[in-house]
């Protein structure tokens, strides 16, 4: 089917491979540098040979000197919390917008779209002050509640639940299902794929969010991975090997998760943009 356009652009492909190599370069540095003794990373010339002079010392030292596991656990708690709450909010609101009529619907949906266009960072200070007055600062539950940004999910769920066949809902109504039963018994089970997409996207974006967690968290026991890694690399500014080791360890869990869930990314990214 595609055969007509199969002529590959050779120059373009070479440039593309160079681009991918540039993108991969920091990962290569992490992967090799994490296993090098520090002196060979500040020496002249820098030794990045992946086959010689390797050591496990950096890795074991990172686990000794940092709370890496705790940061990871905190990041998972926060990200899962945000993702689950986002899915609940997105599906209920999306369902309401797509399958029900009520006064003020257009205005409310315009507000959803407005929050999609205006990311939460522009409200950094007032959001922090509100969180502070509610006693949410420096607690994991506070980070969860204040991170939720369901606009994209609402948009997605509205489109998806809107595309479900009407007959299903009519039939359920004839069988005596109320509004709640229709939602729980029909909309929820049929929307599992888009719920998965929303779940995964909000999980990853929360996991890698930096600014809001930086503002909210100061207690060491509440630190998440991005904050902990930054702190650790500042405390060990002169030890490049140790920094690269923690960078590598911070990258691996999400990289594995990403590769396992790749299909969702390819579907989810296009959900908002390409529609019929």
């Amino acid at each position: 089917m595609k055969s007509r356009r199969r002529d590959v652009n050779v120059t373009g492909t070479i440039l593309l491979i160079i681009l991918i190599m540039i993108i991969m370069f920091p990962f290569y540095i992490m992967l090799v540098g994490a296993f090098k003794p520090n002196p060979s990373l500040i020496a002249f010339p820098i030794d990045l040979n992946p086959f010689k002079n390797l050591t496990m010392k950096n890795i074991t030292k990172v686990f000794e000197k940092s709370d890496l596991i705790r940061w990871l656990v905190n990041s998972f708690i926060v990200s899962i919390g945000v993702a689950v709450l986002t899915v609940i909010i997105a599906l209920t609101a999306g369902y309401s917008f797509s399958r029900m009529d009520f006064p003020g619907k257009n205005i409310l949906f315009a507000l959803v779209m407005a929050t999609l266009m205006m990311p939460k960072q522009v409200l950094l200070i007032p959001n922090f002050l509100v969180a502070n007055s509610l006693g949410l600062v420096d607690t994991l539950i506070g980070v969860i509640l204040t991170t939720i940004a369901p606009a994209f999910g609402i948009f997605l769920c509205r489109q998806f639940t809107g595309s479900l066949p009407r007959e299903l809902f009519d039939a359920a109504e004839i069988d005596g299902c109320g509004e709640l039963a229709k939602f729980v018994r029909i909309a929820v089970p049929l929307s599992l794929p888009s719920m998965g997409t929303v779940l995964i996207f909000s999980f990853f974006s929360t996991f890698n969010d930096y600014l809001w967690q930086l503002v909210m968290i100061s207690d060491k026991k509440n630190m998440t991975l991005p904050i902990g890694v930054t702190l650790f690399s500042q405390l060990n500014a002169s030890n490049k090997a140790l920094q690269l080791a923690i960078a590598l360890l911070a990258t691996i869990p999400l990289a594995i998760l990403f590769i396992a869930l790749q299909k969702f990314f390819i579907k989810g990214a296009t959900a908002g943009a390409v529609k019929g």
Partner: peptide, 20 residues
Amino acid sequence: LLIYLPGVTCAAALVIGWKF
């Protein structure tokens, strides 16, 4: 996948690599 990977990587970790 390779081009997407930095997008799901902890920015603090990427910065350590780029700073190198």
